[in-house]
Design a protein around this nucleic acid. Structure first.
Lengths: 225, 225
DNA sequence: CAGACTGGTTATAAACTGGTTACAAATGGC
DNA sequence: GCCATTTGTAACCAGTTTATAACCAGTCTG
């Protein structure tokens, strides 16, 4: 399930992104209205979180533009004292709103409620990239036309992050963040291990990786032809 | 279509009542929790709108009492800054919520959406998937052409969730949420037990499950051929 | 070149998961 | 109240998954 977040507050953006990805959502971030719209077209998210106050194009404009061509659920983020703005946003077609500050738990509950309301229950479509097809719910991957392979929780999260960003190298720090939810010096080994185990499963010859390749000192990336 | 509204704010009660009756609904009003419960029994409404803050018995209590004996759709009305309360209400079995202030248009849309959603579920027709046929009202399942088996309340809820998502693995967390309405560390055992008991009933050889299978570290799923 | 750093590999320990048995508490009809 | 059923708790085991450590080969840097 893919969620687009647009907010100009980078700290908040990171926090929301982290919270949601911990719950298994794939997160796409935008820090202004223009990129939000661009990313909306490119990524086709299943839900959009919009801050009302943003440079580029504010929450209203983005919401209105999205509504012109999609009925995807939109949740507005508002600061206290923006009641008028809020009513306007709801009139414009926003489906829900969340007052800052909010707890991660609240965010998750509301996002899930909104998705449920939108009829998205849990029929997640598998993520495809190159020769790989990942089913996040089932914790399985298929390589080419082969049999689905069982993955562990961490393996699934790693592949999920790499598949969503297929073709681009992802830094070790970011992978640690996405998979374990924290980063520390001692965790270098965890990632090495996890990559190793995933390669054992998905590569034809694990010693010569064709899919999950190392990008020297830049992290790892998933190769797509 | 009959709707019960419970709110201690008389103005708001009148406004909501007016809005809904304009849309053709029959409206029953209650201004406190106690009368809400009494009217619920007497009138058997098709949907309930509950304010969280009420004298007599608050929204939670009313919601919980209603849930004890009915699966009628319940929508909570919340004020700003009641996020925690809201999350609790959703966990208690409320189906949707509406933040004040809301526009009449939003109210109508949400009520209709909820009724539509509930209409599908309460369709009284047994849920079928693969070789299983579950009658939620009767609390029975049939496996293939066999005799209907009696199920307990929890067993029914578990199978209902799995059947609706037949073929897809459902996480333990989500099952805990659907069946018990909460999740916690110690609740792991509950699910293990319940799955075990259901298998004893529906599987030919409970030690080699053909229907209710384990998806390692991803939850459980119902197999359909 | 030495030392720091990175990434791959192997091995082992610790934590967690799921199945099972047994039993206690709660619930519901009579 | 009593009884049967249902639900919750605890403990144990086997298997899997994850964390930690150690060693090695490259690579980068001063």
């Amino acid at each position: 399930m893919k969620i687009l977040i647009a907010d100009d507050d980078h700290d908040l953006l990171a926090l929301i992104g982290f919270t949601l990805s911990q719950s298994g959502f794939v997160v796409i971030k935008a820090s202004d209205g223009i990129s939000a719209l661009r990313l909306f077209s490119v990524e086709a998210p299943d839900l959009v979180l919009l801050d009302i106050n943003m440079p580029g194009a504010n929450g209203f404009e983005v919401c209105a533009r999205i509504r012109e061509r999609s009925s995807v659920p939109v949740m507005m983020l508002t600061a206290r004292g923006e009641e008028d703005a809020l009513v306007k946003a709801l009139e414009l077609g926003a489906d829900d709103y969340l007052n800052k500050p909010f707890s991660p738990r609240t965010l998750i509950a509301r996002v899930k409620a909104l998705l449920r309301r939108a009829g998205f229950e849990a029929n997640a479509t598998p993520i495809r990239a190159g020769r790989l097809q990942l089913d996040v719910d089932e914790h399985t991957v298929r390589v080419g036309l082969g049999e689905p392979l069982r993955l562990t929780k961490l393996e699934t999260r790693l592949l999920q992050t790499l598949l969503v960003n297929a073709g681009h190298a992802i830094s070790s720090d970011r992978l640690l963040m996405q998979v374990w939810g924290h980063k520390g010096a001692g965790d270098r080994q965890l990632l090495k291990q996890l990559v190793h185990r995933v390669r054992q499963k998905i590569e034809v010859d694990p010693s010569v990786p064709q899919l999950l390749q190392t990008a020297q000192s830049a992290g790892y990336k998933l190769v797509v032809e």
